[in-house]
Design a protein around this nucleic acid. Structure first.
Length: 541
RNA sequence: GACUCCAUCGUCUAGCCCGGCCUAGGACGUCACCCUUUCAAGGUGAAGACACGGGUUCGAAUCCCGUUGGAGUCGCCA
């Protein structure tokens, strides 16, 4: 596993130069620091989460070498908060960001917004990283932990205070609550009234810092997906930037981090669209370049309501456990909200070449497992047999209660051709592959048992005798020949092939559905096949 | 409630920005048939949508307005 780069050690001495120049040279901040992020960081395990943290000092390596004057490149980011697993909507957001930056040959950064210490958990961080890794969405550079940058956020708030674009607010939570209560009573939207906007009679008490937002005019956002969106400034109140305890709010943190990370395109969920107005006001207040925004619609549950746990919102790891292939999930997610004409099956390479924000739809989509199943089935058929055998082994081991034996493993791989053809998920594949991994004697299900009545056994016995004689031990045991013998035997007895094939299937697999039965015969080999038939012939009834 | 966004088959969508080529195309799902040693897959076909109402225009799925419906945001959460 590649070792994470130690961000702090290298960038520590750049602190001053970054700070001194960041405000005046922000226009160059989007340039790409040459050669710094060629490596990929796959993060696994919790120890890594800490080692990638940044020092408390307001340092950011991405913005520190902008004086190179390189041309602007696309830098996108995925910024989940680790309060739960990486759900499917987040996964799609990550995918779109990843695709966009790869398409433009830019960078895709990962920032964990763990400022809410209360709700953030190490397990959730690991789940997010693991989820991205499973989806094969690799990010550039080190993971940024927002919590490590609080000092820088506070610094910006203080700077705004100096600039007069922010002010101290001494309202108590109680007072604010009363304010909202009163507004509600009059039927007005609950908003802060700006009572401390211009006061300077500051008591010696804890206080928050609020943005001195414009009170007239309008704020507009040029969104690459939604188009131009605008709102009257009187709709927006003076939001808190820094809490009374000195910690930054989300609104401040995102803006500062996106700026410092030189993010050129903010691609995120629709639910952030109205927040964007307030964020834009911060950019303006700091006189920073506003990044391009693209708000992609949310994914809804199959009932059309917002995707929640109740509606089956699952973490990406759940999709792995359900037996979906990462490339299938990517393809499915891509088509959920993005299109390229009538194309449905789109390889990742093709997706990188084609992806654009212009073809992202504006309306929310519902998650549909049936379609995912179909797409997954497609990729299953395409997947390499050895890889599938590898992937299905743990599923099989769980069903078996023991690891898959070497013989089982070998049969699995040789029989994969017929197996993968008839499965939509690895789970289903497991179900169908069980008979290859099981030891004799097999358990027969009810229908199989039905095929092994006196008549079926009679046909079986004759066939078994025939192939045992025609293909002695050591002779080639191939499906073509095995089928020829079956056809001849059936014809000799005036039977339809099915009257022989079905009992054979029952004997060999314990079920009435399976891959092509002569293929099964070949994969199982002479001794095992004959033994399984003998087991079946010993049945009563 | 206020603000913002959205609105084509059951679902994902093409078409919309740059009105006519749209008697609205594809995919999933559904149904039928074909193929067939089972189950799948595959093939062929069918049913299935421009939310509604007004404009503008020779002409509107495409432009404008309204209605309805859905979603999101309104915290010293992120």
């Amino acid at each position: 596993m590649p070792k994470p780069r130690q961000a702090g050690s290298q960038s520590g001495q750049r602190t001053l130069s970054f700070r001194a120049s960041s405000l005046s040279q922000e226009a160059h901040a989007r340039t790409r620091p040459e050669g710094m992020f060629s490596g990929r960081v796959w993060t696994m395990g919790n120890d890594m989460l800490h080692s990638a943290s940044f020092p408390a000092a307001p340092v950011y390596p991405f913005a520190s070498s902008f004086d190179k004057g390189l041309p602007m490149t696309v830098i996108s980011r995925f910024a989940p908060s680790p309060t739960g697993f990486l759900h499917i909507g987040g996964a799609r957001t990550a995918l779109f960001n990843w695709l966009f930056s790869r398409h433009h040959g830019g960078q895709f950064l990962l920032r964990i917004e763990d400022t809410d210490r209360q709700r953030s958990t190490e397990a959730a961080k690991a789940a997010i990283l693991d989820g991205l890794k499973w989806l094969e969405l690799d990010w550039d550079g080190d993971v940024v932990f927002q919590s490590a940058r609080q000092a820088r956020h506070a610094e910006v708030a203080l700077r705004m205070l100096d600039d007069g674009t922010a002010y101290r607010c001494f309202c108590t939570p109680l007072e604010l609550e009363a304010m909202r209560e009163q507004a509600r009573a009059v039927g007005k939207p609950p908003r802060y009234d700006g009572r401390w906007r211009d006061r300077t009679d500051w008591p010696n008490a804890p206080h928050a810092i609020r943005l001195k937002a414009p009170q007239s005019g309008e704020t507009q956002v040029r969104d690459l997906v939604q188009g131009e969106v605008r709102v009257g400034n009187e709709q927006l109140d003076d939001m808190v930037l820094l809490r009374a305890d000195g910690t930054p709010t989300y609104m401040l943190s995102v803006v500062v981090d996106d700026h410092d990370m030189a993010i050129s395109h903010v691609i995120r969920g629709d639910d952030h669209l109205t927040n964007t107005f307030r964020q834009v006001q911060i950019y303006k207040a700091m006189d920073w370049a506003v990044p391009a925004f693209a708000h992609i619609p949310l994914i809804h549950g199959s009932d059309g309501a917002k995707l929640s746990k109740r509606h089956g919102a699952l973490g990406v790891e759940a999709y792995r456990e359900l037996g979906y292939l990462p490339e299938a999930v990517r393809n499915y997610l891509l088509r959920l909200g993005w299109s390229h004409g009538d194309e449905e099956i789109i390889s990742t390479t093709q997706a990188v070449a084609w992806f654009d924000l212009g073809h992202v739809g504006r309306s929310p989509a519902r998650f549909d497992f049936q379609k995912l199943d179909n797409v997954n089935g497609h990729y299953l058929k395409q997947a390499d047999n050895a890889r599938l055998a590898e992937l299905v082994a743990p599923f099989l081991a769980e069903a078996l209660g023991r690891p898959v034996s070497a013989v089982g493993r070998e049969r699995l791989e040789r029989g994969m051709g017929g197996l993968k053809e008839r499965a939509k998920t690895l789970k289903e594949l497991t179900e169908n592959a069980l008979f290859y991994a099981k030891d004799r004697p097999l358990l027969y299900d009810e229908k199989a048992r039905g095929q092994l009545g006196a008549q079926g056994r009679g046909a079986l016995e004759a066939y078994a005798g025939r192939i045992a004689a025609a293909l002695p031990a050591g002779a080639q045991w191939l499906q073509g020949r095995l089928e020829e013998e079956a056809r001849a035997e059936a014809e000799r007895n005036g039977l339809k092939l099915g009257q022989l094939a079905q009992p054979l299937r029952a004997a060999l697999t314990g079920r009435t559905t399976s891959p092509p039965i002569f293929e099964v015969l070949e994969v199982l080999g002479r001794e095992e096949s004959l033994s399984r038939i003998r087991d079946a012939l010993a049945l009563d009834g």
